[in-house]
Amino acid sequence: MSTAAVNVNRSLFKGLNLRQKTLLILGLTSFLLLAIVVSSLFIDNESLPTDFGSKNLSPSLEHPFGTDWMGRDMLTRTLKGLGLSIVIGALASLISAVLTVILGLLSSAGKAADSFVAWLVDLTLSIPHLLLIILISIGLGGGAQGVIIGVASTHWTSLTRIVRAEIKQLKTQDYIHISRNLGKSKWWIATKHILPHLIPQILLGTILMFPHAILHEASVTFLGFGLSPHEPAIGIILSESMRYLSAGYWWLAFFPGLSLLIVVLTFDLIGENLGKLMDPKNAHE
């Protein structure tokens, strides 16, 4: 009777249990992001023809986001830019997560290693984020590579802190001591006992790092230290459109900015729902 009883009041969402709802939201949002990335791959320069006959058009059915001063369709440009942003964000977050895992496991190896990790975290945190990204990005000659490495090498700190605290707490657990007494090595305990507890944290942390990475990439590019001006990045679009804002071409900044916001919030939504799935407290609702 159980399943039936739970599903009595079936409307669009009400009939689903929390897990089904969460998975549905996760599916839809991931699909949206994936669609943006995939569609941006099919956009090349040919689909962005310069057409001075239709420059600076305000939003219409034909050009929902309007067109720019060279007559290019802003929707297409925005999609291309978002796709690039997501890919850069993904790479940066992944690299950060890998760094976190390595540093986390290192910190569980011993006291000296742990102090080293703590020192590294503090060192990185002591320099303002944006400044560090700009420095690294310029140092590496700018471009996509510079931005990715810049963002990746600054965003691992907070997650590493969380992971380190978690490891500290785990290491006081009785079952860790018991494992040592049963003859298990430090490495064995780190991978078999500690790592399984960290995976959900790291997965969640990585996804929640996405919006940060994307926003930082966009802002660094906006300031002119990131991707080069001929790349179709959101940051470039926004900084270009600044020059046209005073002329009343509001759509040049509004729609790309709004889209960026939506993508960022979508990632937050994914993170939040994944968190719900993993949290044992409401695991059974």
Partner: peptide, 17 residues
């Protein structure tokens, strides 16, 4: 290595991962 002296605690739920 394996310790010939093994300790068992009061709270078994804390002794298992």
């Amino acid at each position: 290595g394996y310790n010939p002296v093994q300790l068992v605690f009061q709270h078994p739920e804390k002794s298992v991962n």
